[in-house]
Amino acid sequence: MRNVSINLLDDTPRPVVAIGTDYSYGHVLPRHTHRRAQLLYGATGVMQVSTHDGNWVVPPQRAVWIPAGVAHEVLMLGVSTRSLYIEPLAVDLGSQCQVISVSPLMRHLLMEAVEVPLAYDEAGRDGVLIDLLLHELARSAHLPLHIPLPVDARLLALCQGFLQRPDAHQSPQQWAGQLHISLRTFNRLFRQQTDLSFSQWRQRACVVLALARLAVGEPVTRIALDFGYDSPAAFSTMFRRVLGQAPSVWLEGAK
């Protein structure tokens, strides 16, 4: 199915409903929920998914798992999606959103799934295709592309400010001073609220924010300097530390 709302198809008596949708650049899906879990795959473009727990940036050729009932908002930056709406008992990737890798096989299955009939024959070829897709989904790898956000209002304001203007030179000492607490108290609070150290959070935020810019062709040098890194090499080293690949290698894998 193409360019149709799941709200019209949610009662389809099949474990999976596959829908392909094309979005204009900058299109925003306001915060909403689904009864079914959703696998949201971007064949092109970048998606930014926001929930109460944090933000996820989904580069091209990756997907985000959105559990049933989780309220989420999505910003589409030149995206053509393939979505699977999955009955909660059909597969379980956990109760929180996560960005996942998409194997070449899974990519082809997703593209094909939107072409199968809505009430596909579960015992026939289309049913086998959907079953294989669920098996591939269950074994997919999780990617560290989540920026957790704290609940503490004062700390949340600092984190949101950083996401608007990332600066690799910002330090925990600076943030502790702005909150008028000791560095030790700040470090403890930050880890309690995000499950990451300040340095880990800052690096992950820079990587995730950079992915959206890299995906639309911005040069590494420009991004590195905008984020406060002393050189493109310093940025690439940090990027490789977080994702295990240099920016150029990551982008090549997204094609």
Rank of each mutant, 00 (worst) to 15 (best):
M1N: 02
L8Q: 05
D10W: 10
T12S: 06
T12H: 01
T12V: 13
R14A: 02
V16N: 04
V17R: 04
I19D: 01
T21C: 05
T21D: 04
L29R: 04
H32Q: 14
R35D: 15
R36N: 14
A37K: 11
A43Q: 12
G45Q: 03
V46Y: 11
T51L: 10
H52C: 02
W56E: 08
W56A: 06
Q61Y: 06
R62E: 08
W65V: 08
G69Q: 03
A71S: 13
E73P: 00
E73N: 01
L75G: 02
M76P: 01
L77M: 12
L77F: 12
S80L: 02
S80P: 00
Y85D: 10
G94I: 09
G94N: 10
S95K: 15
Q96K: 13
P104L: 03
L105W: 06
L105P: 02
M106Q: 14
L109F: 05
L110N: 03
L118G: 06
L118M: 08
Y120V: 14
D121A: 14
E122A: 13
D126C: 14
D126H: 15
V128L: 14
L132S: 12
L133A: 15
P144S: 05
P144G: 08
P144T: 04
L149N: 02
P150N: 13
L156P: 06
L158T: 05
L158K: 10
L158F: 09
C159F: 09
Q160R: 15
G161C: 08
G161N: 13
Q164P: 01
R165S: 13
P172S: 13
Q173K: 13
Q173P: 00
Q173H: 10
W175Q: 11
W175I: 09
G177E: 13
L179K: 04
H180D: 14
L183Y: 00
L183N: 03
T185K: 12
N187F: 03
R188Y: 08
L189D: 02
L189C: 07
Q192I: 05
Q193I: 01
T194R: 04
T194D: 11
L196T: 05
Q200N: 04
R202V: 12
Q203G: 05
R204M: 02
A205Q: 11
V208R: 04
L209M: 11
L209V: 10
A210N: 09
A210R: 12
A212P: 00
L214Q: 08
V216M: 07
G217F: 09
I223A: 04
G228H: 14
G228K: 10
D230K: 14
S231G: 11
P232Q: 08
P232G: 12
A233Y: 09
S236F: 05
S236I: 05
T237C: 06
M238P: 14
S248N: 02
V249T: 14
L251G: 01
